[in-house]
Write a protein that binds this DNA or RNA. Sequence first.
DNA 1: CCATAGGATGTAAACGTTACATTTGCGATC
DNA 2: GATCGCAAATGTAACGTTTACATCCTATGG
Lengths: 341, 341
Amino acid sequence: MANIKDIARVAGVSVATVSRALSTPSLVRPATIERIEAAIADLNYEPNHLAAGLRRQRSDNVIVAVPSIFNPFTSAFVEGIENVARANKMRVLLGITEGDIDTLNKYVSMIAGKQADGMILLEKTLPDIVRNPPTKSKMPPLVAACEYPPDITLPRVRTDDHEASALVVGHLAELGHTRIAAITGPLDQFMSKDRLSGYKLGLLRARIEVDEAIIATGDFSLQSGYDAMLRLLDADPQFTAVTCANDEMALGALSALQQRGISVPDEMSVTGFDDLRFGAFSSPPLTTVHIPTVEIGEAAMRLMLDSLLQPDQVSASREVILPHRLIVRQSTAAPKKRRKA
Amino acid sequence: MANIKDIARVAGVSVATVSRALSTPSLVRPATIERIEAAIADLNYEPNHLAAGLRRQRSDNVIVAVPSIFNPFTSAFVEGIENVARANKMRVLLGITEGDIDTLNKYVSMIAGKQADGMILLEKTLPDIVRNPPTKSKMPPLVAACEYPPDITLPRVRTDDHEASALVVGHLAELGHTRIAAITGPLDQFMSKDRLSGYKLGLLRARIEVDEAIIATGDFSLQSGYDAMLRLLDADPQFTAVTCANDEMALGALSALQQRGISVPDEMSVTGFDDLRFGAFSSPPLTTVHIPTVEIGEAAMRLMLDSLLQPDQVSASREVILPHRLIVRQSTAAPKKRRKA
DNA sequence: CCATAGGATGTAAACGTTACATTTGCGATC
DNA sequence: GATCGCAAATGTAACGTTTACATCCTATGG
C-alpha cells in the first residue's frame, strides 16, 4: 500500500503538506491540494489509521460495554450510540461482558492501551476503577447509562424510571383498579429498585396499600415474566391488574394469562415498560411506557464526545434525563368482572 | 503512562526482552519474566495497542456490517461474532450501514486504512470491491452471511432457507391445508427469493398449485406482516394457512388476525421463520423454523479467523451451511372450520 | 582445552503519521 | 532598498512497539 511519502513524492510536496491537505485543507493552496488529491487517487492511497492514532494518541474508538446485545433494549441503545459515533468519525467497539466484572475491567484497561478513547456503560455493575480511581494515571472517560446508583460521579443519561413507574400505576388506578400486582426486575439492579419504588409511589398516590404478596421478581426475560405471572395467579386470585418492569416480562405474562384462559384486558390488565416494537403487536397490544432507547444511546455518545473534547473539565455530575410517556393500548381497561380463580 | 522503555529500565533488561516476555514468554528466562512482571505491576503499564498494531500492520478488529442492529435477528448474529472474536483476542467494530452502499464501501476502505483486519457482511447489497477486485492491492478478507447470491466467491455461512421453507409448507400440508398463503420478504433480497422458492417447492411436493393471488410481500417488519395479512384477508377469503418469511412478520400477522377476530389456529394456521424468543410467547405460541442465528455469527467469525491466518490461501468458496429445524407450537393445526369472510 | 551449539539478551531499524519549529517567497510599508 | 508580515510549504523529531540480526554466555562433546 502506498503511504504518505509516496503521495508526497508523486505530488512533488513534502509529507507534512500532504498531511495538512488531508486534515486542515485551509492551510494548503488549492492548486497544491489538487495535485495531492490526484496522487491519492492515482496510487489509491488510504491513510493508515494506526499510524495516525499512534502519533495523536487516540484511536477514535469508543467501547460500549453491555452484558449482552441479544436483547431489543440493548440493541436499540447501541444503535443510538453508533448513529452519533458515525456522524463524528468515531467507531463503536462492542464489548460484551456477560455480566462478568473481570471482563468489564479488561475493557476499561483497553482505554489505557489506546484501543479505545472511552467507554459507555450499560451494566449492572461498575468497573473497579470507578470506586478506586487511579492515582498515577488519569481517569479514563466513562459515561453511564440507566443502571447506576445516584452517588457515582460519572456523566450519565437515564430516564426518570421512578416517575414513569408511578405514572403507569396511576393509569391503572384511574381505571378503577385497587389491587395491582407487580413483576419486578432483579433487585440487585438499581434500575429495578427504582421501578419498584415508582410502583409503590403510584400506589401511595392512589391511596392503595402495598401488598408484598402480589409483588413477584423476574429477571427481565420473557420466561421470567411468564413464570412470575403464574406464581402471582397461584398466590392470590384477587388482583385485577399487573404492572411489569419491562415489556419482555409483560409479554411473558400475557402468554401465561392466555394459557390460563384469563382474558386481557377484561379480566386482567397488564402493563409493560420500554415500548418495544413487539408490544404494539401483541395480543392484545400492550399498554406501556415509552422509553426513548435510541435517544438514550445518542445522548450517551454525545456526553462521551464532550468528555473527550474537554478531558480536564470535571464533566462529572453531568446528567441527562430523557422524557418518557405513557402509551395506552388495549391491554388495560377498567376492571369489569370479577375473574374466577 | 509508562511505556515499554520504562519497564525495560526498571527491570534492568532491554525493550526487546520485555516485548518477548509479553508475547513469547518461552524465549525468556523465568527469573527475568518475574522481574519484568514486577515492573509492569509497579508502573501499571499497559501496552500501547496502536504502536503494536502499527508495527505488525494489523488492528485485531473486525468490522461487522449490518443495515441495523435494532433487530433481534441481527443482534443475535452480532452476539455470535463477538463471542468468537473475544475468545480470539479480536474486537468487533460495529458498522451500521442503514442499507447505504456508500457507507458500506467506506467500511471496506477502513480495512485498507488498517482500522480493521477484515469484515463480516450481513447486507443485502455487496460492496463494490467484490465485483471489481483491486488490481494493485490485495483483496481484503471478507466473509458473507446469509444474504448473498450463489455466484460470489466469498467464504460464507448460511442456512438452507430453500429447504427450510419447504419444510414449513410441508408441515402445513400434512395437517391438511390445501390453500396456503405466503408473506414474503422484499424480493430484491436473495434470502427472500430463496424462502419464496422454498415455499413453492413445498407446495409442489404437496401437489398444491401456486396461486400468486395469495402471496403478499412485506419487508420483514412487524408492521409489514400486519399490513400484508390484512391485504391477504381482503383479497381471498378461502385460504386456511399463511406462512411468513420471518417471525416478526408472523407476529404482525397474528396481531392482524386477532384484530379481525379470526382465531389462530382454529380458523387460520400461521408459521414464522427464525425462531425469535418472542415467538415462543406470542398468543398463540408460534410454529416456526429454528435458525441458529448465534451460531451463524460464530461460524462467520471462525471463517474470518481462517482467512486472516492464511491470507493467500484461496479460502474462497468455503461455505458453511448450518442446520435448521421445525418448531411446532400452537399456531398451526388442522383446518377445522371454514371461517366466515 | 577448544570448538560449537543454542539459549538469553541486546541493538537498532522499521511501521506511517502528525506536531512543531523553520524556511521560503512575495507584496506592502517605511 | 531594507524591513516586516503573512501565507504556504518544508524538515524532522517524536509516538511505542516488534523483530531481524548481532552478540554474549554457558555448557557440552570431542
